[in-house]
Amino acid sequence: MQGAYLNYAAKRLLQAVVVVLLTYVFTFVVVSILPGDPVTNVLRDPQNGFTEAEIAQIVAAQGLDKPIPVQLWNSLSGFLTGDLGVSLRSSRPVSDMIAEVLPSTLRLAGAAIAVALVLAMAIAYGARFLPHRYGGAALRALPSLFLSVPSFVIGLLLIHIFGFQLGLFMVIDPDSFWATFFAAVALGIPISAQIAEVLMANLDHEASQDYADVARARGLRQSRLFFRHLLKPSSLPVVTVIALMVGEVLGNTLITETVFGRTGVGSLIQRSVVTQDLPVLQAIVSLAALVFVVINLIADLIYPLLDPRVKLVGAAPRRVTTADELSGKVSA
């Protein structure tokens, strides 16, 4: 197992590195072949007031007059050493600009995933064990409702009720605890719906397995059955779902940050798109890919550790269910 796991981890790590590099190259190429020349467009913008000589100087300094492959090489080696280039608009290092807004976004995204997890677990537990008259079965419909309401609508509702009506937070102070909390709720609700769907389906499946009945025949009460027997096997696939959800969280952060008036990566993207600040966009897209790949890598790496049945074959985990399948023979 030990050697097989290291082998598997090394292969997955290598795959992840390749994916990140390809994403970087892909974004770079797409930006390069776009019609028009955004760089000179931005620099020639009369508002900036650069002279032709200054423009030529900036172009030379940024290496923009070199052939595309050379530019790609320079940009990629910069990315790998942590140098993300310089903004065309503010002339500040891109890494500084991102570092400024990243903590706020990470706080929001992290809080949103936590909210989503708690909410999903509550829905799944309630749907399974709440008696009918307390709305147990009705909870099953909740995820579809959550999914069909866009998160900005939820955000606006939350601001209206808790911000304006109840006065729990001030809209002009978006970094306060309650403001962050409700932004996370708005962002987390659609995510929780998808986790809850997976969790409920898996709970139904696990609860119908023989071992659940056998455990009940051993005298276990419902809550113990849920937490000790059903929750772990049902949440294993959730690990994968959350990892896949990260992309959606990143995308929705943009909208939520706008709705709640927060400064974050979302607002930085929005500004860069409007002003065609290519180095910033390139850096953010590549970082987003990096985050996505790393989270999925972590999920893939911990999955075999969580599920004792998973047997590693090359770079792909495979689930075995019996000793006979594991060895082809009855094992001791």
């Binding site: 071992y211 051993r218 294993l236």
Partner: peptide
């Protein structure tokens, strides 16, 4: 009734391969 289960009435199931929690 629950206190009777296990303590007074034991149960041996049909398919042993599926009767124990696979991840515990």
């Amino acid at each position: 009734f629950r206190p009777l289960r296990g303590k007074a009435i034991g149960f041996v199931p049909q398919d042993p391969g599926n009767a124990l929690n696979p991840v515990r």
